[in-house]
């Protein structure tokens, strides 16, 4: 089974040379720590920066340079700043190659719910609806089950949707899965996790027609 860093490390392998990547808050943020050093990638934050670098050294924080999580950041050579309409133009116009975000639920049709739990405080969707509606290459990073142990990979989402039919790939603590016409296709198992365990934790249709390899570290 993977921890959050393990999920991030596996997703980092999907990041290719020359990609512009938008990382959501939570596990997706960790992906930046695991991207190979020998490829060129630029991270976009939807509040208006391309070419995000690591957090600043203490004493070098700049209140005018933050990411979408409102954290102080730095920029790397080649970085640029832009306004919010331009930022979402990059996203809507499919100039961003890969979007990695978290989710509360994903359905076997590729629907995603990650912004609202009825009856609880609604904080808002931020940029998530724009991202999922526009990006062609979306990877969801999440735990396979919720805190109560219930599956987050469902036939139909029970929570209010963020977007419909948009998720293509999911990396969880148990598995790597692809959303296909017929359900969740199991591509890889996390180290030490059996196909049966993944089946048990998946409420939606799980396709396991071939031998399912264990994830390579």
């Amino acid at each position: 089974m993977l921890d959050k860093n393990g999920i991030a490390k596996r997703i980092a392998k999907e990041v290719k040379d020359g990609y512009y990547v938008n990382l959501g808050i939570g596990i997706p943020t960790l992906v930046a720590n695991f991207v190979r050093n020998d490829i060129n990638v630029e991270f976009q934050s939807e509040n208006g920066v391309l070419g995000m670098g690591p957090f600043p050294y203490e004493g070098e924080e700049d209140a005018d340079v933050i990411n979408a999580g409102k954290q102080t950041i730095t920029t790397l050579p080649g970085a640029s700043f832009f306004d919010s309409a331009t930022s979402f133009g990059m996203i809507r116009g499919k100039h961003v190659d890969l979007t990695i975000l978290g989710a509360m639920e994903v359905s076997e049709d590729g629907d995603i719910a990650n912004w609202k739990i009825p009856g609880k405080m609604v904080k808002g969707m931020g940029g998530a609806m724009d991202l999922v509606a526009s990006a062609e290459n979306i990877i969801v990073a999440m735990m396979h089950t919720n805190r109560a142990g219930a599956s987050k990979l469902l036939k139909k989402c029970s929570l209010p949707l963020t977007g419909v039919g948009c998720v293509k790939k999911i990396v969880t603590n148990l598995a790597v899965l692809e959303v296909t016409e017929h359900g969740f296709k199991l591509l890889e198992r996390a180290p030490g996790v059996s196909v049966d365990e993944i089946k048990m934790a998946t409420e939606g249709t799980l396709i396991t027609d071939n031998e399912v390899p264990e994830m390579q570290g």
Binding site: P54, F55, P56, Y57, E58, G59, E60, E61, A63, D64, I66, G69, K70, Q71, T72, I73
Partner: peptide
Amino acid sequence: EKRIEQRTVRPR
């Protein structure tokens, strides 16, 4: 005032 909401830094 330019208040910072989430001051995040890395060690030198």
